[in-house]
């Protein structure tokens, strides 16, 4: 039985393509994770900014950002590794709901203060 703790999980994402979602404005940043620190600040490369806006259905508005960015830790809702489906989304330009299903495990780190634990 192996456990994955948050900080080792983040370190394992370094060098991989990730999506960081912010708490505000339905904004996400997709890019290669360059580094992180003890506060969970992030540094991304080749970053693409994705903003979700609703106009007669759901549209995805995205624009290419300048290569490297630093994201201040307090803005982050979660960070996850990019998977096959995400490439589909960014190609088609339309947002589809994340159909994870039960068979696929999408590992996400959710920032502590926003976590709500529900007893089932």
């Amino acid at each position: 039985m192996s456990t994955t703790n948050p900080m080792p999980f983040l370190r394992s994402l370094i060098g991989k393509e990730v999506i960081v979602r912010l708490k505000w404005n339905k904004t996400e940043y997709m890019g290669i994770l360059l580094s992180t620190d003890n506060y969970m600040n992030f540094q991304l490369d080749q970053t693409k900014e994705i903003i979700y806006t609703k106009k007669n259905g759901i549209e995805q508005k995205s624009s290419e950002l300048i290569g490297e960015i630093f994201i201040r830790c307090n803005n982050v809702l979660f960070i996850r590794e990019l998977n096959e489906e995400d490439n589909e989304i960014s190609k088609n330009g339309t947002e589809t709901k994340d159909e994870d299903g039960d068979s696929e495990v999408v590992e996400e780190v959710i920032e502590g203060e926003d976590v709500v634990v529900e007893e089932s």
Binding site: L34, S35, D37, Q43
Partner: peptide
């Protein structure tokens, strides 16, 4: 390749 984000 910086060690920490603040290095950027």
């Amino acid at each position: 390749q910086a060690e920490e984000p603040l290095d950027l």
